[in-house]
Every structure is written in structure tokens, then in C-alpha cells.
Amino acid sequence: MTVNVLLLLVIAVTFGAGITLLLERSLTRIVVGTLLVGNAVNLVFLVASGAAGRAPIVDPDDPSPMSDPLPQALVLTAIVITLGVAGFLLAMAYRSQQLQGDDEVQDDIEDTLIMALAERDEASQSWEDDTGGEPDEEGADR
């Protein structure tokens, strides 16, 4: 199996650009990243399908090699799915913009709270103002 180096290069660049965008906080950029990564995968399938040939329709009179139809069917499925997900993400970006004025993905609030507690080396509120009835295993662990 021979591999087209140019195609590989395009795949690498598209993946790189797509992943970089996926790491952004803005949902719109993430959508673009999703599309790029999705297209890069489709190109990978193109490489995987091997050498191109004539259209994959069985014809006993034509001995020249056919293209492999299966990867094309798989790519078609993948394209449809990527499109659907991108549409959903766009809707989410729009909703996020409606709700908070931008489409940035925020940090988890609970996470931030617990991290802040850890930095201050404190226990959460539910541990402290407890009067009486302290069960054994909690006391033992302090």
C-alpha cells in the first residue's frame, strides 16, 4: 500500500489546528475545531481505503480496479454525525451567549469552591459548626 505524503501532511496540519482550537474556551472556536478534526479523520479514512480506482460499480466487462466502497460509506456516516454534533454545539454556543453574554466555557463552581478550601487548608462548612452527636469515625479521622 502506497501512501500519499501530501495527504498525510494535510491530515497532520488539520489535526493540529483542530486540536488547538478544541483546547480554547470559546465554544465557537471549539465548533470550528470539531469540524477540522472531523475532516482530518475523514482524510485518514481516505488514506486507509488505498489506491483510488474507478467508481465501485460491479462491471464484468471492465477489468480495471475499483475503489474500495466501504471506507466511503464509513466516511459518509462520520460526516453526517460530525455535522449533527457541530449543529448541536453551535446551538449550545448560541444558548450560552444568550445566557451569559459570551460563549466561554466556565470552570465548574463546585470544583473551584473545593479547590479554594484546599488552598486555605480548611474543611467544608458541614464539618465545622457541628455541635454534639459527632460520630466516631469522623472524629477519628481528624
Binding site: 465554544l27 470539531t34 454545539l89 449550545m92 444558548r95 463552581i109
Partner: peptide
């Protein structure tokens, strides 16, 4: 489509 769910959803979807 509330705020917290959209936020949590974006992490999940990505």
C-alpha cells in the same frame, strides 16, 4: 438549556 447545564454539557460534548 439552563446556564449550569449548558456549561456542564459543553465539557461533556467536547
Amino acid at each position: 438549556g439552563t446556564g449550569p447545564r449548558v456549561r456542564a454539557g459543553s465539557t461533556y460534548v467536547v
